[in-house]
Nucleic acid binder design. Structure first.
Lengths: 242, 242
DNA sequence: CGTTGATTTGACCCTAATCAACTTAGGTGG
DNA sequence: CCACCTAAGTTGATTAGGGTCAAATCAACG
């Protein structure tokens, strides 16, 4: 046996009830619970760009990401809308009446636990602790979706972009990664689809912040915040700065 | 004893797992569960316009609406953003780390169960059935928040408005109310804040649909869809019709 | 019946969409 | 390892649509 075997599914979240260090994310599942879930799940791998499931497909399983990033999106007549970027320790594969409500594709190479819903339901009926963990995680998902809506309600492209970068940075910190630089998990068009902008507008917003020396980008996937105060102002207010 | 005493909190939702009649909403709680919850809750009343709690307040209780409509919103530097309209059978009062993440005010006169979180947590640890009901309801809330984000990502005011009316109609049907006419629970400015528009733009969007004979409004709170096909086209596509 | 706040309308401005041309990045095969 | 090829991203010119601010109308309430 290896020294650190994979213990089983892991759910990371901020506790909705307990007061603690701001945004302290922790592992919700105990070792026993992880082992329990491991017994009913299988490990699956997806190549970058691969479709995991599509909106409307019969939902047989939920997924828990071990590594990589998944894009959850909906296909519309006029292009895609990205609902969320799903990271390690997150869950995806929500269903409504037995069908997935959105599509999912691997934004990077992905390794995940695949948890059949039938088995999951059985376990949830038995183990109240597990239910509570799931409730906590769902609360977090709900808050994130509401944050997304808040972002989309902002009227200026630069504000939306700044809020998004702020979000990525927060997630990075919560994951314990270095946060000097913000890492973009996906390409421009996916970000634009998340922000409700066209790629062209996103590009311009990026240019605006860059030329104002508020941010700088090392390459297409790495952004650094140079002027925190100005950045915050763009993220918070709608009006353009002086 | 009256013939139909108030049985206790009620949660209505669409089951995420079981396939059934499209969008069939039903009562999740059994009589026993409702009685159990009733024991720890109190009934509270709010006058129209009254603030129920504010973002950042210490969260001591969740609420379950018996009658009336509540507006959940966030206060921003440049006006309010409405996250959701909460109806009978819904729950509100989500928290993060012991604090409410948004504000809530009564859009109409409201009667609700107030459920202390401490007692709720205790019950949830015991009763796995109840947890599952809550999970189902949270899934529904998540889907709704994602739908809201989808709506806000649409670029045309008329499209957002149509999607919103569609939503209200769907909810009305789910509640078993007559759906010949769509009832708006709140005033224009709240709707605008939900749609990410200014009241002026909302007014114009309304006018556009009205003058194209797609909808008509009896008064400020009642709208009727005249041309279903055209309406659907506005809601679905982004491009303007001929 | 008047007062107050909400809603509609108008004139103008400004931002992001559009469409298209151009450039860059990244992957492929020689 | 480099040249090529394709998809992705950027940039420019133009336009449509919503924001803004202000005035006028309407509704609700006392």
């Amino acid at each position: 046996m290896p020294a650190t075997p994979i213990a089983g599914p892991a759910i990371y979240a901020v506790d909705p009830w307990v007061r603690g260090i701001p945004k302290a994310r922790h592992q919700l599942l105990s070792d026993d619970e992880r082992a329990l879930l491991a017994k009913i799940s299988s490990i699956v791998r997806f190549k970058k760009g691969e479709t995991i499931y599509q909106e409307g497909d019969a939902a047989e399983a939920a997924f828990n990401i071990i590594s990589g990033v998944v894009t959850a999106y909906r296909r519309l007549a006029d292009g895609d809308h990205v609902s969320s970027f799903v990271y390690q320790g997150d869950i995806f594969g929500l269903s409504e009446q037995g069908c997935y409500t959105n599509s999912a594709k691997a934004a990077t190479a992905v390794v995940a636990y695949k948890i059949p819903l039938s088995a999951l339901r059985r376990i949830l009926e038995q183990h109240a602790d597990l239910d509570i963990d799931l409730i906590i995680k769902l609360c977090e998902g709900l808050r994130e979706a509401q944050h997304h809506a808040l972002l989309l309600a902002r009227k200026h492209a630069a504000t939306r972009l700044a809020m998004f970068l702020e979000l990525l940075e927060r997630l990075q910190i919560a994951r314990g990664e270095p946060a000097a630089e913000i890492h973009l998990p996906v390409g421009r068009s996916s970000i634009a689809a998340y922000l409700g902008l066209t790629p062209a507008s996103l590009s311009r917003a990026l240019r605006t912040l860059t030329s104002r020396k508020i941010i700088s980008s090392r390459d297409l996937r790495h952004i650094r915040i140079l002027d925190r105060a100005a950045f915050q102002k763009v993220a918070d207010t709608n009006g353009a700065g002086p």
